[in-house]
Amino acid sequence: MRALRFVCSSVLTLLVSATAMAQEEQEPTTAPSDSATQELPALEPAPMAEPTTPAPSSAASAAPSATVNASHPAGAIDSRQGYAPPPMSDAVDGPSRDMSRDFWQVHLGVRVGWVTSEGYDPFSENDGFSQVSMGATRAFVLSDSISFAPGLLWEYGNAASKARNAPTELSVHRLGAVAEGRLHLDRDLYVLAKLVPQAVYTGASIEEDSATAVLVRNAWRFGVDATAGAAWNFPRTLGVDDVVPQFWVVGEFGYGWSMNQDLAFSPDVDEDDPRASTTLDLGMLSMRGMMMRISVAMTF
């Protein structure tokens, strides 16, 4: 719960600052072609630029976007071909990528899991386990609507409670490699499927008065999260100018799995300390179960 509060406050802070940052004008973008062509703000029209070889971009953007089709303004959706990315901008100092898909993405959010393992009971009064989630991916556009975003992920959470009046604490670190596939439904919306193999580090402790030192149990385990969800660029959808960076709300739901871990506590003493052989076995901890992740992502 503490992690969730941390995340919420962080998200709010980021939202405010990002909103302020979003006021900076970037390159004009063309409204999607529909029956009502939107008038752009009155600006001096930029001189027509020589067609140039588009800047090298990631493989994900190997789409026939180099050819500017004048009949399809940037960002227009061709009902016949799906979403058509907008033309590359001629601005000297502007990005040359489709920022609706071809972007770096960093996220900050909260991962909430439901751990039904009995080994978790000493550390929490309920089955929920929340972690702050941070990560970064880089999208590679595979087609008009599909992109692949590998990345890295780090999540941290902590639970504390009492087990029969003995204070307990459990902290979990997850360090994972993200493999995320995206299906862009719209410029501001895509659905995703994510697989995150991860290294899970759990650090458990219990301050049992019958022991002369704090009892700890630390271990690395392998885990993997499989989630599916969606991301929504809510500021742009709400009418915020097309600026960089963009902010998305990403929601995922899935299942997190990790290997069993024994809870054979031993005193936090040196190995040669005779107390080191003391153990307290509280069974097996399996940090697995349904999970969801809500985050705010910033793309650029």
Binding site: R164, L215, S277, T278, L280
Partner: peptide, 9 residues
């Protein structure tokens, strides 16, 4: 051998 938390868990 010291055993702790006999009634724990």
């Amino acid at each position: 051998r010291m055993h702790v938390g006999l009634l724990q868990g």
